[in-house]
Amino acid sequence: MTNLDSTTRKIPLFPLGTVLFPDGVIALKIFEARYLDMIKTCLREKTEFGVVSIMKDQDSKEDSPLVFSQIGTLALIEDFDPIQPALYMTKSSGTQRFKLLHSQQEANGLWIGEIELLANDPVTPIPEEHQKVVKLLNEIISVIQSEDLLEESPFKKPFKTDDCGWVSNRLAELLPISLAQKNHLLAQTNPRIRLDLVTEIIEDDGLSNLMLH
């Protein structure tokens, strides 16, 4: 990553049709030359890349310019398996959110973003009214553990089920909601309010039986 000043920097971007939350896990199959080079650089320099959502309007034309979410998450590569010279299987974890100030595409097709890092969630205890969704999340984790799915799990240890930020992020990842809604949750700086919003979605949509999808 290239430092611009104390709060902004330039990083390679990996635009996706999904949202990565801090402490979340994302598995990527890398085969395009621009991303193979990016992954090699990140591994060599022990640096992160940025995951941003591609926000496409349903009415947009195929040749219209890409529009990225304004909030993204830094991703640090944790597992790397070069299956073939031009095919890597990677697993990365979300570290810190950022605001995307500007982006431009290089000649090789790689997007570079100028970003401003956002503060990490403060540790915030779970209020009593949200214990029901914590129980729901614990049940999902139990299913993953009982079926020995941790290798494929969207979660990584430690499981911070007593913290508003961690619980809201994990549930936001699991919820079958739109990219716009997920990015709205990611952008919420107050973890207690983010958990309020997640709980509201679950209760309003009758998702109390939410499971991995």
Rank of each mutant, 00 (worst) to 15 (best):
H130K: 14
P154G: 11
Q96T: 14
G109M: 03
L136V: 05
I140Y: 13
L137F: 15
W166M: 05
L186D: 02
S146W: 00
S103M: 06
D121S: 01
E173I: 03
L117R: 09
D162M: 10
L175H: 00
L100Y: 04
V133M: 03
K99W: 00
Q105G: 02
V123Q: 10
S168E: 07
W166P: 10
E152F: 15
P125I: 05
L87K: 06
Q105M: 12
W166L: 12
L136W: 03
T189G: 09
L101S: 02
W111L: 08
T124C: 09
T124V: 15
Q188I: 06
A180V: 14
W166E: 06
L110N: 06
I177S: 08
T90C: 12
H102K: 15
L175S: 07
T161C: 13
D121P: 00
K157M: 10
C164H: 10
T95E: 14
H102D: 13
G165R: 07
E139P: 00
P191F: 05
P122W: 00
V134Q: 03
I140L: 10
C164W: 10
L175D: 04
C164E: 12
A172P: 03
Q104K: 08
I115A: 12
R97N: 08
T161V: 15
P122Y: 09
G94V: 02
P176K: 01
Q105E: 11
S178W: 05
V123M: 04
L117T: 08
G113L: 02
G113H: 04
N120V: 12
K135G: 11
N183Q: 15
M89L: 12
E106W: 02
E152C: 04
M89W: 00
N190F: 01
S146D: 13
M89R: 07
E147S: 12
I126F: 09
S103C: 06
A86Q: 09
K160T: 00
F98C: 07
L171E: 07
P85T: 02
E129F: 01
E151P: 02
P122H: 11
L150Y: 11
K135L: 14
L175K: 03
E173A: 08
N169K: 11
W111P: 03
L179E: 08
N169H: 13
H184N: 06
H184Y: 11
E114H: 00
I141S: 07
P125D: 10
V143P: 06
K182W: 07
G109D: 04
L118N: 08
K156P: 04
P158D: 04
D148V: 02
A119P: 01
A172M: 06
L101Q: 11
E116N: 10
R170N: 07
E173F: 14
K182Y: 07
A180Y: 12
R97I: 03
E129R: 15
Q145D: 15
E129V: 08
H130M: 13
E116M: 13
T124N: 08
H130V: 06
L179M: 10
E116Q: 15
L136K: 10
A172K: 01
N183R: 02
K157S: 06
Y88K: 05
I112P: 01
E116P: 03
E116F: 00
R170L: 05
K157T: 14
P191Q: 03
N190T: 13
Q104D: 14
C164Y: 04
I140P: 13
S153W: 05
P191E: 04
E139R: 11
S93H: 09
E139V: 01
Q188M: 15
L149Q: 14
F155C: 07
